[in-house]
Nucleic acid binder design. Structure first.
Length: 272
DNA sequence: CGGGCCACCTGGCGGC
DNA sequence: TGCCGCCAGGTGGCCC
């Protein structure tokens, strides 16, 4: 589920509910997700008081008061975070982590495919290696993008999926932004001139901001920390719309072609 | 080294 | 009904 808008929605939900709370107990229902949990993971977190919840790209970062490592969470493809009162004990399948707070609420981590992971970051403010700029900050601008694109041999879509170029985009929002910028996902990066880079940067910011406002996109899985879905999927122009009419030209049908193993949806008429 | 491809997992869906 | 192949919001590692 999770690209930047979904992770940001979760971050906002957690910020309002767990900041100031203290972890009483951590229970793991398996020893690894994508990677093994750190040694002494549970004991390290117990009795820590949450100071803030932040986000870098698709990563969630939980910081604690006092000298303590930060908790880094990546949701992979199917990871979900659910906050429930003590009354709701309903464990859905694939619940791998159970964190109990001092107000007796549980934070569950659920992840059927187990592509997600958790880490402890011991160096405060340690930058996540290899993460590019946040797309919604001024560090991500057309000058920056143009410079990054000139040396690339690959099509524009692959570059935008590279988290070291810009952090937080995934298949959905890359394709939606390319449609808005009227740029084909197959266009070679080197052919992107200044006007094209400006259109693309604007489109990326616009799409992400709208999606964040709507609580992200819910496809198969739910997303909010209370199990509530987002609404941006109703605003898709191309994603999952193969065979439906393009809502810009109203004439051609949205196409779907594989691009390095993943589906690319686009309008062959509006995007060049 | 850059870029393409596969593997890692489970579940849901459509087709036969 | 049942089985099979294919697909899915991500990304680290391998290979050329």
């Amino acid at each position: 589920m999770p690209e930047l808008p979904e992770v940001e929605t979760i971050r906002r939900g957690l910020e309002q509910t767990i900041v100031g709370r203290t972890i009483e107990k951590v229970v793991l229902h398996r020893s690894s997700l994508r990677f093994p949990f750190p040694h002494h993971f549970e004991k390290t977190l117990e009795n820590l008081k949450i100071q803030s919840v932040s986000r870098q790209g698709k990563h969630l970062l939980v910081d604690f008061e006092g000298p303590a490592p930060s908790l880094l969470i990546h949701l992979g493809m199917s990871g979900k975070v659910r906050l429930t009162s003590s009354a709701e004990i309903t464990h859905e399948p694939h619940t791998h982590v159970d964190i109990l707070f001092d107000d007796k609420k549980h934070l569950y981590y659920i992840d059927p495919r187990r592509f997600g992971f958790m880490r402890l970051m011991h160096h405060k403010h340690e930058r996540l290696e290899n993460l590019g700029p946040e797309p919604l900050t001024d560090d991500f601008n057309s000058g920056y993008l143009r410079k990054k694109l000139t040396s690339k041999q690959s099509p524009i879509k692959s570059v935008l999926l590279d988290q070291s170029i810009v952090a937080g985009l995934g298949n959905i929002y890359v394709l939606e932004a390319l449609f808005r910028a009227e740029i084909s996902p197959f266009r070679l990066s080197q052919s992107m001139d200044d006007p094209a880079c400006e259109r693309l940067v604007d489109a990326i910011k616009e799409v992400l901001e709208e999606a964040v406002c709507q609580g992200g996109s819910t496809l198969k899985d739910y997303k909010g920390i209370y199990g509530d879905g987002g609404y941006f999927q109703h605003g898709f122009s191309v994603y999952n719309r193969a065979g439906l009419p393009c809502n810009r030209c109203k004439e051609y049908l949205i196409l779907c072609h594989k691009q390095s193993g993943r589906s690319s949806y686009y309008c062959g008429h509006c995007q060049a």
